[in-house]
Simulated assay, not measured.
Amino acid sequence: MRIYVPAPLSDAVLELLEGDPAVSAISAVRGGSIKPAGDLVTADVAREGANQVIDELHRLGVPRDGTIHVDPAPTWISRPGFDAERRIPGSSADAVVWSDVVQRSYDDSELNWTFLSFMTLATLLASIAIVLDSQVLVIGAMILGPDFGPVAALGVALVRRRWSLFGLATRTLVIGFVVAILAATALALVARWLGWVTDWDVIRPRPGTGFIYTPDKWSFIVALIAAAAGVLSVTSAKMHGLSGVFVSVTTIPAAGNIALGIALGVWHEVWGSALQLAVNLSGMAVAGWLTLAVQQSVWSRVTIRRRRVRAFPVD
């Protein structure tokens, strides 16, 4: 952690860090912070103990006038650091640093041109995949779509009771899908006018992409499993599972099929794909919320154990 501490709080912050068993190294540069006027303090903190340290810094009022930076260390060679991890209950890979998760959720839920561009490009790619009945292009569209970020943010908002985040994520999802579908519909109309696509391209047998507009119980179950895995990847120290999440749910392909159905007047495809989209989004939101709720419950127990370690430190 790198902390810009207002001068009146410096001694209290240093006392807090020195007394915490999760902290293995501290440095302070007196007068090192110009804005706010005060000190620059850095500390090595075991990931398992980060939440309580951040909470106590909040109680001291550091974020009100100063700044707390939380930066994961890619390589950490330290015997005191290793001993701190051993003292603190839990595993660093399992630890959820809630400040990081909430901040990332706000970032992923921001409605900006980059998000809208990726949504539109992914939906266009999905529409082309449907016309060509190409599973490879469908997978590419799934990976390109940025919609998992705000969907996961819905679960974070519910668990952490951040209602502004919930509203932001909902707004971003709705506007993102509407803009992407409208853009893909407009280009599909142009392609229809040029004779590049016909309604036969949508209603013909499509063994590679027919699952997009035929939701069933497995669609919901897959969305539950994929979202749970995605949330675990985001909240833990290991993020290797996200690509599997992106190619497991069919939100973007469903949006692409909706656009084609509207442009070509194939309304049963529109309704089926809209239902697929709703099933996937609701399943992902529910799974994200449940996964985060379980993690919060587990780590609340770990925090209690950690307080005991702090009260009775052992080597």
Rank of each mutant, 00 (worst) to 15 (best):
K35E: 12
V202S: 11
Q52P: 03
F177N: 04
V202Y: 06
S27R: 10
A22F: 01
L9S: 06
L132N: 00
V174L: 13
D71A: 09
D133Y: 12
V96G: 00
P63F: 01
F118G: 01
V102Q: 12
G49Y: 03
A126R: 00
S134A: 13
I258M: 08
V247T: 11
L9M: 15
A184Q: 00
R64I: 07
V5G: 12
V270T: 11
W218A: 07
A227R: 05
I225Q: 01
T198F: 02
G81C: 10
T170S: 08
G140Y: 01
L154Y: 03
W98A: 02
V97D: 10
L165A: 03
D147K: 03
A293Y: 15
V298W: 11
S99T: 13
A126E: 00
I262S: 03
E48N: 14
I304K: 04
L275R: 11
T75K: 10
F312S: 15
E48C: 14
I212Q: 01
L264M: 08
A186S: 08
D201A: 09
P63M: 09
S10I: 02
V314L: 11
S10V: 02
L281F: 07
L187E: 08
A228Y: 01
L137G: 00
L277M: 15
R30W: 12
T214I: 05
A73T: 07
L40N: 12
R171T: 13
V286Q: 06
R305T: 09
R307N: 13
P8F: 09
E18Y: 03
W267L: 13
A46I: 09
P215A: 06
L173G: 07
S236N: 11
T291N: 10
I212D: 00
E56C: 04
L125H: 08
D107P: 08
I304G: 15
A229Y: 10
Q135P: 05
F220M: 10
L40K: 07
V5H: 06
P36D: 03
R64W: 12
T172A: 10
A46T: 01
P313C: 13
G140H: 10
R87C: 09
F166Y: 12
L14E: 15
V190W: 06
L224K: 02
V45W: 02
P63L: 05
W218K: 09
A95T: 06
G208S: 04
R59P: 02
D55T: 14
T75A: 11
T198K: 09
A141H: 06
Q276L: 09
S91C: 03
L290F: 09
I139N: 05
V29S: 15
M284Q: 01
A73D: 07
